[in-house]
Amino acid sequence: MIASGDPRHKSGQSSSKVGVGSSLFEVIQLEKSFGGIRALCGVSLRLEKEGIVSIIGPNGAGKTTFINVTTGMYFPDEGDVYFQGQNITGLPAHMVAHLGISRTFQLEELFSSMTVLENAMVGCHTGSRTGMFAAGFRLRSAREEENRTRGEALENLRMVGLEHRAADDVNSLPLGERKMLGIARSLGVKPNLIMLDEPASGLAAHEIAKLGDLVQKLVENRLAVIIVEHNMPFVMSISKRVIVLDYGRKIADGSPDDVRADPGVIKAYLGEED
């Protein structure tokens, strides 16, 4: 583990500040501990533009913590997060969403009291302005905005192939469709960067193929996608860049082939060769 007085810490921070304006998303020396457990120690990452980056690692490597800290769910102990040149470290989660980063959840976290369409419509929350009085008196502006939001939500459902389920109860969806709805909902934010937390876990082969197509489609729409995943074949087939975390540290960063050959990665996954 790296001590907090590690010299890399300071140099990393100052050198990367220079290029902050040019990159889409940049994380510098991120640290987060829960009690005595260091979930993230000094993780840095830089994303220039749209594309797919996968983060893999054994259980408890800090992958989900990485998403939680960079999207404002948790406050980092140290380090900075920049998005489109703006320092977003420690901003509350709803502000981060407004700026254009959205995420999905490992356990979907769908709104279970609503229909599929309503879930997607709540996703479009940041795009609408109706206040309490306009909504309560049902003014013309509120109604127009609602129609527009419904259109956008349907568009997002169509994108993930769920438009035929729009009127259904969320609880009636099978797991694969729940994951897709999670993505459709987070697209409502109109993000530039979307983080998918284990999108393929528990999915059947044909559903994983569909997910792969969807992710490609998102990239074609100029989105950056960060995928946190366990499913190796899926990750290796879809991404050009793979980052490996182990005990909160980044131990590899490169193309799938490089990562597969990396001795540190092999050690982390299979144990020491001896």
Partner: peptide, 21 residues
């Protein structure tokens, strides 16, 4: 309305609600 749905959303899942702004 939009606000009512937002209300129901944080009743169902507060983290998800925040994550969409």
């Amino acid at each position: 309305s939009r606000i009512g749905c937002a209300m129901k959303s944080f009743h169902d899942s507060e983290v998800a609600s925040q994550s969409i702004g």
